[in-house]
Design a binder for these strands. Structure first.
Length: 490
RNA sequence: GGUCGGUUAACCGAGUGGCUAGGUAGCGGUCUGCAAAACCGUUUACGGCGGUUCGAAUCCGCCACCGACCUCCA
C-alpha cells in the first residue's frame, strides 16, 4: 500500500510523508472531551478534523484504529495551587448528583452532538476512570525507574530527572531552564521537588468523592496520565498519530510525552497533529472565557450571538472550509455564507443524476479527481478540496445549461467523485429531507396565515373561518394573538 | 516578559517567486411574463518600510497591530 499523504508533524514543524509503522494498520489517538458540560463549537473542530483524517486513511485502504478518550476524572480546575477542584466533582456538587451521573449526562450529549455532525464513532472510546489499574501500573514503572517519586501520598513526575536524559518541552518548543526562570513563586506545592513536577497520582482529601485505592493513598490519577496509559494499552508502545487541540500542546501533551518516554525509554508517537482554535470576535472560544456557544445552541439558534439556527452540516462545512491548522473566526455572516455554499453543493449533487450525457465530453474528470487527491494529500487541505469540488459544481450546472458536455464515462466518474469526496471523505450529508421540509412548512404556513389575515381585514369571516377549520382538521391549530396569528401542531 | 503563529479584496478563507483558489455578498450581462436558480463577466487583495531578484503578496530584515501558549481549556 502506498500513499502520498503528507502530514504536518508538530514535533518537526514540517510536513512529512506519512509512513505507518505496521502496514496496513494505522493507530490514531485523539484527546477527547472532559465531560462536565455541554459540548461547544470548539469541540467540533478536533472531532471533525480527525474524523476527516480517519475517513481519508480508511478510504486509502488502511485498517485504522481510532482511539478517542473520555476524561471523566482527575482534570482539575487549577493545578497551580495544587488544590484545584475536580471539574466533574464540582458539577456534581452543584447539581447534587453523583459524579458519574454528570459524566453519563455529558457523554450522552457529546455523542448526540457528534452524531449530528456526522462524525464516525471512534474504534475505542476509553474512559480514564475505567483504566485506573493501568494508570497505577504505569506509575509503578515510573517510580521504579526513578522518574516519579511519592510525597505525602501523592506521586509526582520528576521533570529535572527526566530532562537530564530526555528533552522536556520539545513539542511546544520550550526550554526547561527558561520555564523555571520565568516562573513566579507559588505557594502550596511543597510536596513537589520542583514547581514543574506534575502529579501522576493525587491523594484525595477526605471530602473528595472520586477515589480509588493505590499503594500510595486513596486518591485519583493525574490528568495527563490517562492518555499515556490508554494510548499504550490500545495502540502499543509506538503508534502512528496523536492528535488534539493546539491548546493541549503544553503542558498536556508535553507531560504525556515525558511519561511515556520515561516509562518506555523510547518515542511513543510518530506524528503529532494539532488543530487550531475557533475564535469569536478574534478571541479564543472557551468555556472559561464565557464566550462559548454550545452545539445545541448553534443547532437551535438559541443564543444571544446567533441571528438564526445553523444546521449540523452547515457547521461541518464551515469548519472544513478552513484548514485545520488555521484559526477560524466565528460570525453569523461567515456561517450564513457557509450555509448557502453548502446548499449550492448539495443542489448540484442532486442535479448530477439528471445530467444528460453526450457522445463527447468537454470535461476532464480524471484531472479534477487528481486535484482532489492532491489537496487531501497536502496535510488534509479541505478548503482546497472544496474549491475543486465547486469546480465540479460549475461543471454540473454548465452541462445542464448546455455550455459544457459530458459523456457517459465522464458522468459516471463525476458521480463517483462527488460520492467519494463529498460524502465518504468530507463526511457531509444532505439534510434537506428533514431541515428543508421543516423550513418549507414554516414558509407555507406564513403564506396561509397572511392570506387569512387579508381575508380578516376584508371582514371575509367565512373564508377566515374556513382556513382555520380546515387547518384544524389537518392537525394544525391557529392561535389569534394580539401580535398576529401563530400556529402549532396538534 | 518568554516562545510560537497570524495580518489576503465587502465578509469568510486557500495558495504560490512570474500563471483566475473557492464560498458568500455587490455590480453588469445571458436566460426569463416577473422573480428565483443557473451560467458568463466584474469589483480598492495580499499590514507598513527597506533588501535580495529580470520579477515578491510569496524569500530576508526591521516596525506596527492581532492572537495563542507560558500548569483551566478542543
Amino acid at each position: 500500500m502506498q500513499n502520498n499523504l503528507f502530514i504536518y508533524n508538530t514535533l518537526s514543524k514540517k510536513k512529512e510523508l506519512f509512513i505507518p509503522i505496521h502496514l496496513p494498520f494505522v493507530g490514531i489517538y485523539v484527546c477527547g472531551p472532559t465531560v462536565y458540560s455541554h459540548a461547544h463549537l470548539g469541540h467540533a473542530r478536533p472531532a471533525i478534523t480527525f474524523d476527516l483524517l480517519f475517513r481519508y486513511l480508511t478510504h486509502l485502504g488502511y485498517k485504522v484504529r481510532y482511539v478517542r478518550n473520555i476524561t471523566d476524572v482527575g482534570h482539575l480546575e487549577n493545578e497551580t495551587l495544587g488544590e484545584g477542584e475536580d471539574r466533574i466533582e464540582k458539577k456534581a456538587r452543584q447539581e447534587q448528583i453523583e459524579p458519574m451521573e454528570v459524566v453519563q449526562k455529558y457523554v450522552n450529549t457529546y455523542h448526540k452532538n457528534m452524531d449530528q455532525l456526522n462524525t464516525l464513532s471512534p474504534s475505542i472510546e476509553p474512559r480514564a476512570s475505567g483504566h485506573i489499574i493501568e494508570q497505577i501500573e504505569l506509575i509503578k514503572v515510573l517510580i521504579k525507574s526513578g522518574y516519579a517519586y511519592e510525597s505525602n501520598g501523592s506521586v509526582y513526575f520528576d521533570i529535572l530527572k527526566y530532562n537530564q536524559k530526555y528533552q522536556y518541552g520539545k513539542l511546544s518548543g520550550r526550554v526547561l531552564d527558561d520555564l523555571i526562570s520565568n516562573t513566579r513563586d507559588i505557594e502550596g506545592r511543597d510536596e513537589k521537588r520542583n514547581p514543574f513536577d506534575f502529579a501522576v497520582w493525587k491523594k484525595a482529601s477526605p471530602e473528595h468523592l472520586m477515589r480509588w485505592p493505590s499503594p500510595w493513598s486513596d486518591g485519583f490519577p493525574g490528568w495527563h496520565l490517562e492518555c499515556s496509559a490508554m494510548s499504550i494499552k490500545y495502540l502499543g508502545e509506538e503508534f502512528d498519530i496523536h492528535g488534539g487541540g493546539m491548546d493541549l500542546m503544553f503542558p498536556h501533551h508535553e507531560c504525556e510525552i515525558a511519561q511515556s518516554t520515561a516509562a518506555l525509554g523510547k518515542e511513543t508517537v510518530h506524528y503529532w497533529m494539532h488543530n487550531n482554535m475557533i475564535t469569536i470576535n478574534g478571541q479564543k472560544m472557551a468555556r472559561s472565557l464565557g464566550n462559548f456557544i454550545t452545539l445545541d445552541q448553534l443547532f437551535t439558534g438559541d443564543h444571544p450571538l446567533l441571528v438564526q439556527a445553523y444546521s449540523p452540516m452547515t457547521i461541518r462545512f464551515f469548519i472544513l472550509q478552513a484548514h485545520y491548522r488555521s484559526t477560524i473566526d466565528f460570525s453569523n455572516e461567515a456561517l450564513q455564507a457557509a450555509e448557502k455554499g453548502f446548499q449550492k453543493l448539495m443542489k448540484a449533487v442532486e442535479s448530477l443524476d439528471k445530467l444528460k450525457p453526450s457522445d463527447n465530453s468537454t470535461i476532464d474528470v480524471i484531472k479534477l479527481k487528481e486535484k482532489c487527491y492532491e489537496a487531501l494529500d497536502d496535510d488534509l487541505n479541505s478548503p482546497m478540496l472544496l474549491s475543486h469540488l465547486f469546480e465540479g459544481v460549475r461543471i454540473v450546472n454548465s452541462v445542464i445549461d448546455g455550455t459544457e458536455k459530458i459523456d457517459v464515462p465522464g458522468h459516471e466518474s463525476l458521480k463517483a467523485l462527488f460520492s467519494t469526496f463529498v460524502f465518504e471523505i468530507l463526511g457531509l450529508k444532505d439534510e434537506s429531507a428533514s431541515i428543508g421540509n421543516e423550513k418549507l412548512t414554516g414558509d407555507l404556513m406564513k403564506i396561509i396565515i397572511d392570506l387569512r389575515q387579508a381575508a380578516k381585514n376584508n371582514k371575509d369571516w367565512p373564508t377566515s373561518d374556513k382556513i382555520r377549520t380546515e387547518l384544524k382538521s389537518a392537525g394544525v391549530v391557529l392561535k389569534d394573538l394580539k401580535e398576529g396569528a401563530e400556529w402549532e401542531r396538534e
